Computed example of a mutant assay.
Amino acid sequence: MSVRKYSLWVCPPSHLPAHALLDGVISNFSSSLSTPRFPPHATLVSPVYAASDSSAIAEVTDYVKKLHEQLGTDIVGNGIPVCVQRVATGIKFYQCVLLEAPGSDVLVAANGVARGHWGINRDVPVFYAHVSLVYGEFEGEELARVAERVGAGLPDDFEERLSFVATEIRIIETVGSCDQWRDIGGVSITLDK
């Protein structure tokens, strides 16, 4: 039996200004830098494997139940806050230029529950809470210039305007290049849905 590879994302709800602002920043820089375009999100955990899309949805539904049990419904009942604080660079293609989210304690705890749920090896790197703005392979001074340009393109109060509370977990089949990724659906985190 073959398995499929997925990533679990928490995204700003599409009706919130943070979604439109992040989407605009990502779109603007992917166009001007000729880099991949992707939806605004913070990766909760990746990769997870399932036999099919329906199996992946069932697994994430079970995970959300476990999330409420382990963290408490009062903590995750309204969603998972993602609090961005500063522009940074990374060494990975998918973490080229990003907004760090070090104050996102519930997101970090939710990642821990996910690692336990899917049995993800402890050798996997420590979770880095962030929202990517640019995917790419820039290095050294060029990377510093790109990060400076991205930072200059953000609103002065971006920490407030680009932070969000995710109300669902999106399940993304992440096979191939970014333009081949497939959003197979979402599972609500909140109690009202």
Rank of each mutant, 00 (worst) to 15 (best):
G119M: 03
V113K: 12
R115K: 13
V131L: 14
E137Y: 04
Y128F: 13
L107C: 00
E137C: 04
A109V: 02
G151M: 11
L133C: 11
R115D: 00
V126W: 01
A147H: 06
R149G: 03
L107F: 05
A110C: 08
F127D: 01
R149C: 11
V126E: 11
G112D: 14
V131A: 12
V113Q: 13
G153Y: 09
N111K: 04
E141S: 11
G151I: 01
A152C: 09
A114L: 10
R115M: 06
A114P: 15
D123G: 02
V113I: 15
L143F: 02
A109M: 08
L107T: 04
A147L: 06
H117W: 14
E141Y: 08
R145L: 10
D123N: 10
R122T: 00
Y135I: 13
F127G: 02
E142V: 05
R122I: 00
H130G: 06
I120M: 02
R122M: 00
H130R: 11
R115F: 03
D123V: 04
Y135S: 11
E142R: 12
V126P: 03
P125T: 12
I120C: 00
P125Y: 10
L133W: 13
V108H: 01
A147I: 07
E139H: 14
V150N: 04
A114C: 13
Y135K: 12
F138V: 08
G119V: 03
A144F: 09
H130K: 12
A109R: 13
E141T: 08
L143W: 06
N111T: 07
A109N: 11
A129C: 07
R145Q: 14
F138T: 07
A109G: 07
V150E: 01
G153Q: 10
V150R: 01
L154V: 09
P125W: 06
Y128G: 07
Y128Q: 15
V108D: 00
V150D: 04
V124I: 11
A129V: 04
V106Q: 05
Y135L: 12
A129F: 03
G151Q: 14
A152L: 13
R115S: 06
V134S: 09
Y128V: 13
E141D: 11
V134H: 07
Y128H: 15
G151S: 14
V126F: 02
V134L: 05
E141H: 08
S132G: 14
I120E: 00
P155L: 09
E142P: 00
L107Q: 02
A144Y: 03
Y135W: 15
E142I: 01
N111C: 07
R122F: 01
V106K: 03
G119P: 02
Y135H: 15
A129M: 00
E148F: 09
V124S: 02
G112N: 15
P125H: 12
G136N: 08
V124T: 14
A109F: 02
A152M: 12
V150F: 00
F138W: 14
A109K: 15
A144E: 14
E137F: 03
V108Y: 01
H117T: 07
A110P: 05
G119C: 04
L133Q: 10
L133E: 10
N121L: 05
N111P: 13
